[in-house]
Design a binder for these strands. Structure first.
Length: 258
DNA sequence: ATGGCAATGTTTCATTGA
């Protein structure tokens, strides 16, 4: 099966591209971020026509997450938010799909190091790590997909000197990401040989994409039981091309049958 | 080509993203 994560930067704008991508890639489970849609505006009819059930938690203008599951896959125990962390912002949804506990994260951006939003990001991540420890204690098969807004290592950054200490790359943010791994998760992308300078996000400005000036900030993390089933992990760079792309590319893993 | 964003609502500019 294929499990994917994609920050679509407005599902309203990206719906035609999402539908085309679903038809071409045929993922089984998709974690979406930045849907920017209130729940009553979610395009359930279009998603159903594409062959997927949709489970979502959104708000207008900002944030918003959704899990899509291919028809025929059982979806149970949908939960939103982090129970221990009161938050108006819609950044978390989880569901059990075909026996896999799927967690969809839209980690806060942080704006700039030292800002209020940066402090919120670090507090959010600390609560998220606790939440993941609980999920891992309850489920053997856990997949966490999403926009983590952290480039874990210098090799995930087009220009590590330029970005050193900046938001998305700072030491505390990288420590927060490392805490997710220390909870018992593997960064699926690094389980396999990868081409150098592979990224998942490129700024819309300054010709960043054609110059490949990007960051790898979108990830799929796997518990040991799922890591053992994982046969590939890649980033679909081609989705950043063409008319009205998201600034993020989809990331995905292939899992063999249990 | 020496270029220079996109989406949203508060809309003809400000805010946010990363």
């Amino acid at each position: 099966m294929i499990l994917a994560a994609w920050n679509v930067n407005s599902l309203n704008v990206r719906l035609p591209r999402l539908l085309a991508w679903l038809a071409a890639t045929k993922p089984d489970v998709v974690c979406l971020q930045e849907t920017k849609l209130e729940d009553h505006k979610f395009p359930v009819v279009d998603i159903a026509a594409a062959g997927y059930s949709a489970h979502f938690s959104g708000q207008r203008t900002y944030n918003g997450v959704a899990i899509l599951a291919r028809d025929g896959l059982e979806v149970t125990d949908v939960a939103t938010g982090i129970p221990s962390f009161a938050d108006e912002q819609k950044r978390v949804i989880a569901a059990t799909v075909a026996g896999i506990r799927v967690v969809d994260f839209y980690v806060p951006n942080g704006q700039s190091v030292g800002s209020d939003k940066y402090r919120y990001k670090l507090a959010w991540c600390a609560a998220a790590a606790d939440y993941l420890r609980g999920e891992l204690a309850r489920h053997a098969s856990v997949a966490v997909g999403g926009d983590f807004n952290v480039a874990p290592e210098d090799r995930d950054v087009h220009d590590p000197v330029l970005w050193e200490g900046q938001v998305l790359c700072s030491v505390p943010e990288r420590a927060a990401f490392a805490a997710f791994l220390e909870a018992g998760l593997a960064d699926s992308f690094r389980m396999f040989p990868q081409p150098p300078a592979t990224f998942s996000w490129w700024d819309y400005r300054m010709l960043a994409f054609p110059k490949n000036r990007g960051l790898r900030i979108d990830h799929i993390l796997l518990s040991p039981a799922l890591a053992a089933r994982c046969t590939a992990s890649r980033i679909e760079r081609n989705e950043r091309k063409g008319e009205k792309p998201s600034d993020h590319a989809p990331v995905l893993v292939e899992l063999r049958d249990a």
